[in-house]
Design a protein around this nucleic acid. Structure first.
Lengths: 339, 339
DNA sequence: TAGCGCTATGTTATCGTGAGCATTTCGCCT
DNA sequence: AGGCGAAATGCTCACGATAACATAGCGCTA
């Protein structure tokens, strides 16, 4: 039991309690170097009895090694990023590295601030969502002298390494699939997106591929805030009222797509006969809806895993990929096909 | 621009570049002590040009202050915890404290390990989900000599402070509401719960209050893994096949409840006339379902906020509450009433 | 028994910063 | 001009650990 004299225990306390030098204690606790089994046991016993917890702050300063990986993402409530995180954790668990998460709320200035904070802890690497950052942020990442992996997007020029899908291509592929299924009056529904570059790129790729097929986006609707499911309903209702001839709705994420789906089913619309639907992300959460929404997997877990692998390899000075483009799979579900 | 000679910049580099002592640079960068405006500008300019980022590792060691708050939660993919986190962040943003998140996957041993890791960074406080921990974990928290707030539950004895709702009471209140609405053949559907103590306590409170009303839980069904929505459907189908006389289904969370709701609507069951439903958590996400599921708010954001406030107060040696019981509000929605 | 080589352990310096005190600078008053 | 006080700046050491090197102890062999 620790006799907490308000100041926390140090190696010295353990060394005194076990009658060996601090160095030996340090060696025992890190399993490093040769220590006789007798002393090892004695030290471990003393450490346990005192309730000693090593001070990594001091350790990191002395060894010049901080086994943290900064992971910077826009949001935790998006369902997308927790899955990326778990991919990262899975891989890092087999190494001595540990992820530390920072959240930017999609704000570039906050991203910059969070990055600065994180770099001030001298992490071994950085995993950052997206390719768009302030100049200052890019400069910091370059200057840090550590591996940096930008994830979830490969449409642009990374600071260092990048892993993810091409959202332009994702938009294009979805457009092609929709055209091929025979839909012609196509609308887009998304978030207010000035800051969500990936959604923007999907939209760009989407319109581009439609244009190639001689089709223009018939109408658009954007939202912000609120429950995505409810917003999906509202937006769908609004856009169909405005443009009743629409026969396909492409949503920028699955949640609003699900809202739209529920709305249409309520109204008794024939999905996908009368109106087809597609979302984006392939969120597992939504399995169990009355119809399975067409979607496109964003390779979230895989992005996380791959990014972590790159960091781990670079930390060990092993060779590794610089740019990894993953290929999202289109899932037709029940809402993207025409008879 | 940093001329990155592979080793990172220190105060000394900035001090040499600006012709003042390291101490003065340190003072400028922390806005502390008297520094003439001229030097301040010079130092800031030099720091910026070099791209200097202070080393918090060294700073923390020297000052014996680490402005981190360890936040330890079971999961990020649960929708519940991100909201707690944002409550915490909101409050801590106005202080110099910063949250750092650790995830336990509901495993006591992992919780212990994560706690140990976090304590080794000598945080200023700990916010930990739940009241059930290994003895070793409790000992560590006590020995750390820092404020500890256990959140999301107040049914038990906290190590230090606690903020949350009483899940026993939540279960009781829901049971009372269900009985009052006139339902009598009541079933419970939940997760396999040996490790989810809060769900267990809700269930205990639930059965207890039913018993007081002379009613016994008619049937139960548990699941693990998979998409909650889909599982909710499956479980609901299974339990109704087994016990067709059921007239109320109490789910341990909103997602499986939503799955059940969708299933019943598919089958053309009259909800809530024939069968009533309720979930738990009051997740905003689900607004937009065909019927609004009855639920009970777990005061997630508020728990986070309050916990953060306690930590902040304790760090400043201000007085504060030790135990805060929040009162969940029951939301009847469209699925808990009988005409 | 001297000497070699290994293992187990200790000693010293260092990591980058901040606290506390020491020193310098400068303006102002008598 | 001299002296005083406050503001500005610098110096030294400590923080708790680890790296790198030094040394003590031991068994074994020639």
């Amino acid at each position: 039991m620790a006799t907490d004299d308000n100041r926390s225990l140090t190696l010295r306390d353990v060394s005194e309690a076990s009658g060996v030098s601090e160095m030996t204690v340090s060696r025992v606790l890190r399993n490093r170097g040769d220590v006789s089994d007798a002393t090892r046991q004695r030290v471990l016993k003393a450490a346990k009895e005192l309730g000693y917890v090593p001070n990594k702050i001091a350790g990191a300063l002395a060894s010049q090694r901080v086994n943290l990986v900064a992971v910077i993402i826009p949001s935790l409530s998006n369902m997308v990023f927790p899955e990326v995180l778990s991919g990262i954790s899975e891989v890092l668990e087999d190494t001595e590295l540990q992820p530390v998460v920072g959240v930017t709320d999609y704000l570039p200035e906050k991203e910059e601030k969070v990055l600065y904070e994180m770099l001030s802890w001298r992490p071994s690497g950085v995993i950052m969502a997206g390719l768009e950052h302030t100049d200052a942020a890019k400069a910091m990442m370059r200057a840090a002298g550590i591996p940096v992996v930008e994830i979830m997007d490969v449409d642009g020029k990374p600071v260092d390494a990048a892993v993810g899908i091409s959202h332009r291509r994702a938009g294009r592929e979805m457009a092609k699939a929709i055209l091929k299924a025979g839909y012609e009056n196509i609308a887009f529904l998304g978030t207010k997106m000035p800051l969500d570059h990936r959604a923007r790129k999907r939209f760009e790729g989407f319109t581009e591929a439609l244009a190639k097929g001689g089709v223009e986006v018939m109408d658009q609707e954007f939202y912000s805030g609120g429950s995505a499911l409810a917003k999906g309903r509202e937006m769908t209702e609004a856009i169909l009222e405005r443009s009743p001839e629409i026969d396909f709705l492409y949503y920028s994420n699955d949640m609003i797509g699900a809202g739209g789906l529920l709305h249409l089913l309520d109204k008794g619309v024939d999905v996908p006969g009368e109106i087809g639907l597609a979302g984006f992300n392939g969120v597992e959460l939504l399995q169990g809806l009355p119809r399975q929404l067409a979607s496109m997997d964003a390779c979230r877990r895989e992005s996380g895993r791959k990014a972590a692998e790159i960091i781990a390899a670079r930390v060990k000075n092993e060779p590794c990929d610089q740019i990894v483009e993953l290929t999202p799979k289109i899932a037709f579900g029940d809402t993207l096909k025409r008879r």
